[in-house]
Simulated scan of single mutants.
Amino acid sequence: MTYSKTIAQIKEINGNRDFTPLHEPCFSGNEKNYLADTIDTTFVSSVGAYVDRFEAEMARYTETAKAVAVVNGTAALQVGMRLAGVSKGTEVLTQALTFVATANAIAYNSARPVFIDVDLDTMGMSPLALSAFLDEFGELREEGCFNKSTGRRIAACVPMHTFGYMCRIDEIVAICDRWKIQVVEDAAEALGSKYKGQSAGSFGQTGAFSFNGNKIITSGGGGTIVSKDAQFAEKAKYLTTTAKVPHRWEYVHDELGYNFRMPNVNAALACAQMERIEEIKSAKKVLLASYQEVFTGESARLKPIPAGTDWNHWLISVELENLEERNRFLQETNDAAVMTRPIWRLISSLPMYEQCQKDSLANSIWLEERIVNIPSSVKV
């Protein structure tokens, strides 16, 4: 079959442009004013009013105790895992169907990922698969949970909310509590999403967000660590500001820290974007409704919103019939200057992670062969 009619409809929905991007940022508010203000005040680096304002706004929006602005979502994950006790020789349970940054952040802590399957509807970590893995390989000791197969301590679990869909995070947290495993929530793509009325990023010990240029809102480059425990967040702030002991003029650092601070100029952009996030979400719902009239057939259908999820509508996905149809759809759309992208190649198949332990990943493989993101930009 050919997708020429579908491509024409996608182009029409997106304004019949010469090139239809996958997801471009929307700058129609106070972005220029706030950026100019940082230049006028000369506070463009890692200290400034916009950093403080953005952190306060993120804590309010995610209903957490404190937020810490950092350079990107990967750094947010790395520090969140360190706070959870992830260190050299430990293991972290995560999913193979995710962006590579999730696994890289584990490796940056000199730990090893273990890959757990996802649910077909949420495309995020499956509580059933997690429970089955721990029942088979988990062993509770006084020092925590250990992997009977490898002998390593399982320090943390990092589920990820794929394309803003929420995984069954409450069930995952409950399972991890029983096994004495800390949860670090990869909410990089889920700002504005809720599950059973609770904000993404607020379920685990810490949550990590990304504000890369392709996210629902952007600071150009940036991320945030959030936590309902103010002490954890304070520790995150300390570690990401080079672990410097507060003093009016002395430079004393009492442990290994990171220069992961978000510059004020990026925070200014983020503040302007946060002012319009609900407008952006509403516009994205309208976009989804337009696509519902296009993808009505069996060969290419919109991915339904999982039960219990108030979705942020970040990237809209279609499910193709099989791998051959997926590849045909990708070829024809991109040949027509309509940017579409497949879901990620499974992390467990990448050369640096192919020796890591994994379960069957049956659902992950099924989704890898079928899911494609379609243009999801909006103008407000």
Rank of each mutant, 00 (worst) to 15 (best):
H23R: 04
T42S: 08
P25S: 05
R53F: 07
Y34A: 01
C26Q: 04
D18H: 08
P21K: 03
D52C: 04
Y50D: 07
A36C: 13
A56N: 11
T20R: 05
A36G: 15
A36I: 12
L35V: 14
T42Y: 07
S46C: 08
T41D: 14
F19P: 07
T41P: 09
R53E: 11
P21F: 00
Y50E: 06
D37V: 02
V44A: 06
D18W: 12
L22E: 11
D37L: 04
E55N: 15
S45M: 08
R17M: 11
R53A: 06
Y50P: 08
A49E: 14
Y34N: 02
N33F: 07
T38V: 07
F43T: 13
I39A: 10
V51N: 11
R53Q: 11
T38E: 03
S46G: 12
V51W: 03
N33H: 07
F19G: 05
F27T: 01
T42L: 09
V47I: 15
S28R: 01
F27N: 00
Y34G: 01
A56Y: 12
P25W: 00
Y50N: 08
I39V: 09
F54I: 07
D52P: 05
A56C: 14
P21N: 05
F27P: 00
T38G: 05
C26D: 08
R53L: 06
N30V: 00
D18G: 13
R17V: 08
F54H: 14
F27H: 01
G29I: 00
Y34C: 07
L35R: 13
L35W: 10
T41F: 10
D52W: 02
A49F: 14
T41G: 09
A49C: 14
P25K: 02
Y50R: 08
F54W: 15
V51H: 06
L22G: 10
T20Q: 06
T42P: 03
C26P: 01
S28M: 07
L35A: 11
G48N: 04
D37Q: 06
D52G: 03
G48F: 02
E24V: 09
R17Q: 15
S45G: 11
T38Y: 02
V47C: 10
P21L: 03
R53N: 09
A36N: 13
T20P: 07
E24H: 13
D40A: 14
Y50I: 03
F43H: 11
N30M: 02
T38R: 05
D37R: 05
G48I: 00
F43D: 13
F27D: 01
E31Y: 00
T41E: 15
D37W: 04
T41N: 14
T20F: 02
I39R: 12
Y50K: 04
